[in-house]
Simulated assay, not measured.
Amino acid sequence: MGAEGWRWQDSWIFVSLVIAGGAGRHRRSAATRRPEGIRLTDVLATADHLNRSIPERDDVLGAVRRLAGAGLVTVTDGWFRVTTAGEQLWRSRPSSGMGTTVDTVQKLLNRRCQPGDTDWTLDEDEYGIAVQEYIVRLLPRPRRSPETAQERAEPS
C-alpha cells in the first residue's frame, strides 16, 4: 500500500481530521483542544462540508491506515487525533483558500513523507452508525411555538 503514493482521499481525510479536531486554528494551542480527539461522525461531517459528499468506508479505511502508518494521525478506541508530526505538516502548507486546501495538502504529502500502512480496521457497522448520526444532525429540528416554549418553562 505504501509504494502507491498518496491519494486525493488521503489528503481529504487528513484535512477533515485537522479541521474537525481544531488543529487548523493557528492560534489555538494543543492544550486547549479536546484531549480525547474526535469521533468518526465529526470527521465525516467535516469531509462532507469540504467536498459535498460523505467519504465511503473504504476511503476512510485506506486513508487512515496510510496516514497513521506515516505517523500523522492516531486512532485509539474510536477517537481520532492528529499527531505532532501531522500538525507540523499542516502548519507548513502554503496558505490557500479552503477550496484548494485538499489539493495543496496532497502535494505537500507527496513531497514530505511516504504513506505508511497499519492494521487499523473500520467495522462496517461502526461506519454505518457514524453516517446515521451525521444524517440525523442534518435533519431540520421542529420549531417550537412561543406557547410551547412557555408551557415548558412554567412549573407544574
Rank of each mutant, 00 (worst) to 15 (best):
D42K: 09
K107A: 15
D59V: 00
E87R: 15
E56D: 05
A130T: 05
L40A: 00
K107G: 15
A130I: 08
I19Q: 10
G99N: 14
G78A: 05
D42Y: 12
R112S: 12
V15W: 02
G128R: 15
W6M: 04
V75Q: 05
E126K: 14
M98Q: 10
E133S: 14
V82P: 04
A85D: 14
N51R: 11
R27N: 11
D103E: 15
L109G: 01
K107T: 10
R112F: 10
G128N: 14
V82N: 08
L122C: 11
D103Y: 13
M98F: 09
G5Q: 06
R57E: 11
E124M: 02
A85E: 13
N110M: 13
G22C: 05
T32C: 07
P35L: 09
A45P: 00
T101L: 15
L72A: 04
V64M: 13
R27C: 06
T100L: 14
G97Q: 05
A31K: 08
F14R: 02
E126V: 15
I38A: 01
C113G: 05
R27V: 12
G22A: 04
W79E: 10
A45G: 10
T121E: 10
D48T: 05
I13E: 04
L89S: 02
T101S: 13
I54S: 01
R65L: 05
L67F: 12
